[in-house]
Each structure stands twice: as C-alpha cells, then as structure tokens.
C-alpha cells in the first residue's frame, strides 16, 4: 500500500463517521430500548450494587458473562468493548508491575486487584450496554421522570440531533484546510510527521467551527422560543404529555423476572 493510500485511509473520517453514527443511531429495536426507561434505570441501579455483594470470582465471572451477553445483544460498538478490555487488562498488569518495583509481589498484587477490577468491569459493561442500547430519547425521558430539569434533558436530545451535523461540518472544515495546506512529503519515522500534520489540522479546524456553532446556537434558542419551549417549563400538562406514554408492560416484567432468575442461577450454586 502506498504512502498516499495509507494516509488517505487513516484520514478517512468517512468510515469513522459511519461507525460513530451506527453506534449512536442504530438502537431502535434493541432490548434495552423496548423497556420502560424507568424500569431500566432501576435495573441499572441494581446492577451498580450487585457486584459489590460478592467476592467469589466464580459468581463475578458469571455476572460478567451475563452482562457481556446483554452487551452483545444490544449491539455495543466493538471498538468500545476492545478499548475497555485493553484498559482493564493493562491496568492490572501495570499496577502489579510497579508493585514489583516497589519491592512487592507481582502475583499477590494482581490477585488483590482482580476481584475489584472484575466488579468495575461488570459495571462498565452494564453502563455501556444500557446507555448505548437505549435511545437518547428514552434516556432523556428516564432522566425527566426522576425530576431532572427539562433544560438538561433537552440537551441530550439536542446533542442527538446535532452530533452528525457537527461532525459533518467539522469534516468539511478539515477538508477546507487540507485543500490549502501542505501535507508532509514523507511520513517520517513512526509516521510522526503525518500524526503531527493530522493533529495540527484537527486543532485548527475548530476555529471556524466556533463561529459556525455560535451562529447556530443563537438561531436555535430563538427557534426554541417560537416553539413554546419556555412555555413547557412551567406547564405540567406538557410534562405529562412527554412522559404520558411511558408504561410498564409485559416485556418489562418479563425482563426483570428473567434477570432475577439468571442472577439467582449464577449465585445459588456457589453460596
């Protein structure tokens, strides 16, 4: 592969963009999205607690398997999972390694860290599965139902609206810079020249973006006024309508019940 070609592929924000969009927008129909968001939040809260109740690695392993299956089912980005796994493993190894430098034992410290790290991993996988499986609309309704003010829940759905637009705009801006800049003639050792060039462009491209977003924000807030947004803040009826079609259905009950059975099944053999 020629330098040009490699360079181009690495710069292909296009494929990255596609991956991002799929993560953010392709969650219709996942299990988590079909649940009532309030039920899901409760379930999630429970999973923040459950791992801490056990020390037995067999139970923790079982729980990790369970949430990993859920993560796979809810189509979590593989990139995120890989990143997480990498982080977890290197974390334990590095701590253990530095412990050796401090005169301790590698195995002993790794053993001390493994249960703790496993618990954290269970929680991280759960978080990623729940929040990438749930549509932002449901996330903001869930938060709204526990009393978080609308300005903040609106921020979530607004971010959902704008993310691809802003990324597209940013991509365009990087392209404008590319057409006016000079690419490094050769990539250099470890392609450092290419990385520096890329980072320099990425940083510079924010300058025009700031102006663009400033204009957008202004029109958006104007438009919010004309659409009765501030009216809705004091209006109970409006809040009721926004949360009105949330109801706990059969599927929610099945899911909670099913989870309970699985968890009991994981725990019982070992206590």
């Amino acid at each position: 592969m020629s330098y040009q070609e490699e360079f181009r592929n690495a710069l292909s924000i296009e494929s990255l963009k596609q991956d991002l969009l799929r993560t953010a927008y392709d969650n219709e129909g996942t299990i988590f999205n079909r649940l009532d968001p309030r039920v899901l939040l409760t379930w999630y809260a429970a999973f923040l607690v459950i791992p801490w109740l056990f020390y037995d690695m067999r139970i923790l392993g079982g729980l990790l398997t369970f949430v990993s299956v859920l993560a796979v089912v809810s189509r979590v980005s593989k990139y995120l999972i890989a990143l997480l796994a990498f982080g977890v493993i290197t974390n334990v190894l590095l701590y253990a390694f530095v412990t050796v430098l401090m005169g301790g034992s590698f195995v002993q410290s790794a053993m001390a860290l493994v249960p703790y790290t496993t618990k954290l991993t269970i929680i991280s996988v759960t978080s990623i599965a729940v929040f990438s499986g749930m549509s932002p609309k449901n996330i903001s309704r869930a938060f709204m139902s526990i009393g978080i003010p609308r300005q903040f829940t609106f921020a979530i759905s607004y971010g959902y609206r704008m993310l691809p637009v802003l990324i597209e705009e940013y991509h365009e801006t990087v392209n404008v810079y590319r057409l006016r800049s000079r690419a490094p003639e050769s990539p250099g050792r470890f392609k450092w020249r290419y990385y520096v060039y890329l980072i320099r462009l990425s940083i510079r491209a924010f300058y025009p973006m700031i102006f663009d977003v400033a204009k957008r924000s202004r029109v958006t807030v104007e438009a919010l006024e004309t659409r009765g947004f501030s009216h809705s803040l004091e209006n109970d009826k409006s809040r009721e309508l926004q949360l009105g079609d949330l109801r706990v259905g059969q599927f929610d009950v099945l899911f909670m019940g099913g989870s309970l059975i699985v968890i009991v099944g994981i725990i019982l053999p070992f206590v």
Binding site: N91, L94, Y158, G159, L163, L166, Y195, S202, M209
Partner: peptide, 26 residues
C-alpha cells in the same frame, strides 16, 4: 451560551475520542 459551549465541548470530546492515540504502554 449553554447550547453553544455544550455543542463545541461535546464535539471536541467526540473527536478526540476517535483520534488515533499513541499509547506508550497503558
């Protein structure tokens, strides 16, 4: 201001999240 700062900060976090990182060890 809130929407403005949130959008730009958010874009910045999203971009730096996907930028290649040169990890030296963990």
């Amino acid at each position: 201001v809130f929407i403005f700062v949130m959008s730009l900060s958010g874009l910045q976090y999203a971009i730096t999240e996907v930028l290649p990182e040169f990890d030296v060890g963990p």
